[in-house]
């Protein structure tokens, strides 16, 4: 019982950044923006949150947490805004610019944890721990599950509602589905709509990073993201870019990650084998989904 409970809790902890980053990818893809840079935006968000977490005074108490989350969102949005600006101003393909920005983010963190943000003894490449006011409170006492998971759920439902029922959501979907039709028939400023969607996507990815720092790692490290932003692409595509579906697929991938750890600990399956199994599962699921689509269309 307790072991199962611990597994479920760890699974939801793993799922949290994947759900949030998955939402970021889903929104961008819906707008026709191939945002491959959720990883960099997440790292930018984590960095900003860690910076707030180590530099604010302890006197502001719990206010540090919302401040860190907002800083994460702003940093993630700003990171995406670079690619959005390059796209609208010079027509730079976002697939290329966002990937490059991922590397800049990774090496930027590498520099920061050895330079300006390094912990005071200057021995370890990491920041010092964030103030307790910036810690995400735990959701279930005695486990690692934190309120970030609830934030992920709220974000997913909000994104679903906005995309489906609001005018802004309609403009995003129209711009993504057919930009020319959206421009000529709907009088939509496609360039502006997609730019805004891109930045919102980055901000959400930034929140994912901020949640990870405030709820799980409590400090900034170099390898803060094991490629959450890339896994998020699989999470979003598997959910058919539906924000509510992202909750389910995020939890699925969280379960895979957690099970990989359990297999290593209890039966000595090497980490690499676990990663291979994970990738095979992803491939199989995508192939089956594609097969279904194929069958459905060929019958019709």
């Amino acid at each position: 019982m307790t072991e199962t409970l611990a597994f479920v809790m760890d699974m939801l902890v793993h799922a949290t950044p994947l759900i949030v980053a998955g939402l970021a990818v889903a929104i961008a893809f819906r707008a026709g923006i191939w945002n491959i840079g959720a990883d960099g935006q997440l790292i930018a968000g984590a960095t900003a949150a860690a910076w707030i977490g180590v530099s604010t005074s302890t006197e502001i108490g719990w206010l540090a947490l919302p401040l860190a989350l907002i800083a994460g969102a702003i940093a993630g949005g700003a990171w995406a805004a670079i690619a959005a600006w390059l796209r609208s101003r010079f027509g730079v393909l976002e697939v290329i610019s966002t990937i490059m920005l991922n590397f800049i983010a990774i090496y930027g963190v590498s520099y920061l944890v050895r330079g300006p943000l390094q912990e005071p003894t200057h021995v370890y490449p990491q920041t010092s721990s964030i103030v307790t006011g910036a810690h995400m409170p735990t959701l279930v006492a005695g486990t690692r599950l934190h309120w970030g998971f609830v934030i992920a759920l709220v974000l997913a439902v909000t994104a679903w509602w906005v995309m489906r029922y609001s005018a802004a959501g309609f403009r995003i979907r129209a711009s993504g589905a057919n930009p020319f039709a959206a421009r000529s028939a709907g009088l939509i400023n496609v360039s502006r709509v997609t730019s805004v969607a891109f930045i919102v996507s980055g901000a959400i990815a930034g929140i994912a990073g901020a949640i990870e720092v405030s709820g799980v790692t409590f400090a900034l490290y170099e390898n803060i993201s094991p490629g959450y932003g890339y896994t998020a692409i699989a999470v979003a595509l598997l959910a058919g870019l539906n924000p509510l579906g992202v909750i389910g697929t995020g939890i699925l991938f969280g379960a895979l990650e957690t099970a990989a750890g359990t297999m290593q600990r209890n039966i000595g399956v090497p980490a690499t084998t676990a990663s291979v199994i994970e990738a095979v599962v992803i491939l199989a699921v995508i192939a089956v989904a594609q097969l279904r689509v194929h069958r459905a269309t060929s019958v019709a």
Binding site: V13, N223, Q264, R265
Partner: peptide, 9 residues
């Protein structure tokens, strides 16, 4: 038992 951690998390 041994395990390899990929991330600080």
């Amino acid at each position: 038992s041994n395990v390899q951690t990929q991330t600080p998390a």
